[in-house]
Amino acid sequence: MRAQAAFEALGLLSPALVLEAAPEHIPVMMKRRIAMKKKLCLILAAALLVAALTAIVIGTGASASPRDGRPISDAPVYIPMDTYTDIVERMLVNIGREDLFVVDERGHFDGSYMYKEYRRLDRSGEEVGDLFFILRFTAFYAEPLRLDKEKYAEQIAELEKLHPIWAVTEDICPLDISVTPKEEEFIIYCLMAYAGFTQQELVELYTELHAMVEASDVENKEEILATLPPIPEAYESEEGEEMPEVPDMPSFDEGAQAIG
């Protein structure tokens, strides 16, 4: 009876968690057997392709800062969350912050779940017993998710004050459709510093990214290639150019105190 009770109890889990493990995801997860760099490459290629195309279509160029009203695509690219979770979890392990955990946005499709988490953090960080770490790229989905964007922006601003690493993930996120070369450089830096990617891995990753675009059938291929980040080896040759500093992580207690 105990086992049956346990099996039944699991039926109470939120649909978001259940669907995360749904069989539809199996084909995606099977791709995990491909090396991480290849997986990332696929994502970066898709995202940057969209970014480049969007920039060309809407004519905004690639200079806008993500925090200065980034344009939101009418056709968001839904990239499997697991991939980002992998990246972030790897990053957290590498910086020795295994005490953090990732709250993904999979459960936020009704536009209320995210606020529940925020409120929990706002009221009292200790209530959840851990630091919340929410992927910034959910901002990209604010519109399709019918979230209150103004309120969301305020909450993001508050969280950014508390958790600088929040900003780091934003820059890591290849979904950012307004990535500038400088920001791209920062992405590379973060991938190395936080996620432990080696220079060689990055070179392979970006080389493959370029090759994928080269091999694609898209129109304006040259224009798109021009918007892609250069292969990281180029960065090595630029001596004397300083990479952005790694932000310090606040402790959870500091974060909780700041929340009041």
């Binding site: 699991l10 889990l13 968690l17 259940v18 995360e20 493990a21 995801h25 997860m29 969350m81 697991d82 979770t85 992998d86 979890e89 955990f101 990732v102 993904d104 851990d130």
Partner: peptide, 11 residues
């Protein structure tokens, strides 16, 4: 609170 992979395997 579990890593994504743990959740997926368990569920």
């Amino acid at each position: 609170q579990q890593p994504s992979r743990t959740r997926i395997v368990f569920l």
